[in-house]
Design a protein around this nucleic acid. Structure first.
Lengths: 239, 239
DNA sequence: CGGGACTTTGATATTTCTCAAACAATGTGG
DNA sequence: CCACATTGTTTGAGAAATATCAAAGTCCCG
């Protein structure tokens, strides 16, 4: 095991995810590999994008988590979505588009500029599917916050994270690092951190999850999924 | 006043909205006018699209309202968004895309097939902006349901409807027809219909709104907007 | 070792839900 | 045009879920 990971190692989850969305050919892979060469680190808490301001550069997340946040005048905030490795940010057709949410790094991150649209038909397809997935997860979030009770919200949300991280190969063993505080979970799910804490305890008590030292593991993800009636998110016939 | 409205009359709100998003040139208008010729009626309650099924045809709404609905296994349902005249539905880049929500007609509707992508650069721009708006409203919906209390949710949502209908010229006088039941409002805002009823009464008591015979009117929309801290939804610098 | 951020706990308050029934409006068949 | 069914609205009383407030405990970092 080398001390400093090779470039390919850092990029791997992103490539894994994009390849999972669409099987890439040599050309697409080459273009992608080239783009991955110019990586930019982003420290935790740095804002990648600010609500109401123009979107500067599209970004491909190589490592780390970010949160899409909406701030209210009185200090309340809603975390609308999380941005994970392999996700694309700010890819929008017409330039001069205004961000509807801020995006803030939850952990230290590494990002890069994705290949421009039109560089590869397969990559364009990846972009379209990724965008459709973003929308699907947003719909899921509305439903979660609108209809589910605290236990269901939390379970469904954690299962969604599992599903998404698995796509990037970041939860291959069924467990993953959960880098967010209970307060962030609360702002995501429309609950208070106190209630998140008690709900997590209920899930532990019932032996649904193990969460220790920021590592989350489901005791029986399939059973929990069934119990919550959660269906995997799909946006195209093949995928 | 003629008994059966001329074609242009039916199409007017849709054209008003699309023109408000991007100033259209003669060519775009001609292409649009041509597409508007083949109109399809859709009766209330008919499904325009079914969750999990492939999206058949893109549609441009000429008249009437539809709801994007997510159904849970146990009968609960979340109305994720409303689809109004001038809105576009199912416009997605790659074919074989799967609908993430059902779409069901709330009222009798009239729809048509919009000009295909690539027919006019300006119309393509309209499509992009319309899609960006859809996303912005979805983000607003997450925030509403996640952070606001019942009164705020209802007020903010009704103001959003006003804003959107005004874009289509359907609320020029500051009032509009609200074709949905209190139960639909409840399923939209993650509340019960009983609580919606009481919240509506509170808004009437405080003289914020007048709602009678399905017609909603704000006593002072600007004041309510300020009270709720609601900002208009924007997705591009010019618009 | 001290300090800040995060988690946990307890007691109480508030919002929203549930259930049940009455009431109103609307439409339909006879 | 009435009688009736259906659908939607309104009201009340009590229950449940979740929030609030305050403090103690834990962990990690420098």
């Amino acid at each position: 095991m080398s001390l400093s990971p090779a470039p390919a190692d850092i990029a791997c989850p992103a490539i894994t995810r994009l390849s999972a969305l669409v099987a890439l050919d040599g050309r697409a892979n080459a273009i992608l590999a080239d783009a991955l060469r110019r990586r930019t680190p982003v420290p935790a808490r740095r804002e990648l994008m600010i609500e109401g301001q123009e979107i500067r550069q599209p970004q491909l997340i190589l490592r780390g988590w970010a949160a899409r946040v909406r701030h209210l005048a009185d200090g309340r905030r809603q975390i609308v979505a999380f941005v994970l490795p392999g996700d694309l940010l700010g890819l929008c057709d017409p330039p001069a588009t205004i961000a509807t949410t801020s995006v803030v790094a939850v952990t230290d991150m590494v990002v890069c500029t994705p290949p421009r649209r039109g560089a590869s038909p397969l990559l364009d397809k990846v972009y379209a599917i990724s965008k459709a997935l973003d929308e699907a997860y947003l719909v899921a979030q509305v439903t979660r916050v609108g209809q589910l009770d605290a236990y269901e919200r939390l379970g469904d949300f954690l299962l969604e994270l599992l599903e998404r991280l698995q796509l990037a190969g970041l939860a291959a063993d069924g467990g993953f690092i959960l880098p967010m505080t209970q307060e962030m979970l609360a702002d995501t799910l429309g609950l208070t951190s106190v209630h998140i804490n008690r709900t997590l305890q209920a899930m532990r008590r019932e032996n649904s999850i193990v969460l220790k030292n920021r590592v989350l593991r489901f005791t029986n993800a399939e059973a929990l999924r069934r119990g919550l009636g959660r269906l995997p998110v799909r946006v195209c016939a093949t995928g």
